[in-house]
Design a protein around this nucleic acid. Structure first.
Lengths: 154, 154
DNA sequence: CGGAATCCGGTCGGATACTG
DNA sequence: CAGTATCCGACCGGATTCCG
């Protein structure tokens, strides 16, 4: 691999959805799977951040099963605050992964569903989840051994 | 999907690798891809956290290309602090994804390489990366539109 | 019901300094 | 060279309050 240092920013997931920061340029074009990360703060990183954050995956998984209302999601996901559910949904909506539908009735009725792109993402994510399930025992064993050795040789 | 609330903790990625917190039980056994997230803080979440953290993916991608020394990694990954490189490598080693080899010479020579399991993880991750590359334009477009509408209707 | 706004504690991670 | 230890700022996310 040629040199050309790597860089990566931290999660932009703040309180506000961020007003489009001039769209950091970043053109790939190659097919080298080992080059994707040699760029600055590309879209790849942004999606990975979404994957890695606390609630997005759960929301995506649930919405892939069925369309749900705000409160239904809140009830289904134990422990999530309404703030984080709102923030998470706004991010997913902004990325075009979730469609938000407001029904003009009282009381308000807002429904969330995955977009087609959201569904393909969930499919891809599932591969990772399956990998994890298949290797969780191996990982747990590795951790135990590591911790054991770390404890015996301080 | 039957009810049964969800829950998810936050990254345990602290300064110390954490001394094995009694290993939170969590048995799957089923093959339902929509049930993986209905558990508490399972291994799934822990791996996802590793995926989502700032540097693990970059390290894994680089080590999948070739074995590297500490300083070589540091040089290759622009912007990483030696602290975070150490922390990241320790976590990956603890999970059995990276093998650390110390050569007893002076000056010290420590080499890092992916384990077979680490390689399979990288393969799986690449699927996600490819998905992102394929959809980054669509995502960028969705964001632009979202921001545009958010700006015109405050 | 479905949020938005504010406050605030716990972490994540960078900078720096010190070892073997 | 390959770390470890400490300090500390940034920000992620929970709790709470208020609104249409």
């Amino acid at each position: 691999m040629e040199e050309g240092t790597l860089k990566s920013p931290r999660h932009p997931t703040g309180t506000a959805p961020a007003p489009a920061p001039a769209a950091a340029r970043c053109d790939y074009g190659d097919a080298d799977p080992f080059q994707w990360d040699t760029r600055e703060d590309c879209e790849v990183r942004q999606i990975l951040d979404r994957i890695g954050d606390k609630w997005s995956l759960l929301v995506i998984a649930l919405l892939d099963v069925s369309t749900l209302r705000f409160t239904e999601l809140r009830r289904e996901i134990d422990g999530i605050s309404q703030r984080m559910l709102t923030v998470t949904l706004r991010q997913l909506e902004r990325d075009g992964l979730v469609k938000r539908t407001v029904h003009p009735v009282v009381p308000p009725r807002v429904e969330y569903q995955l977009t087609p792109m959201g569904r393909t993402l969930h499919t891809t994510i599932n591969a990772l989840v399956i990998w994890t399930e298949e290797h969780q025992n191996q990982i747990a064993a590795a951790r135990e051994e590591y911790d054991r050795r770390a404890a015996t040789t301080p």
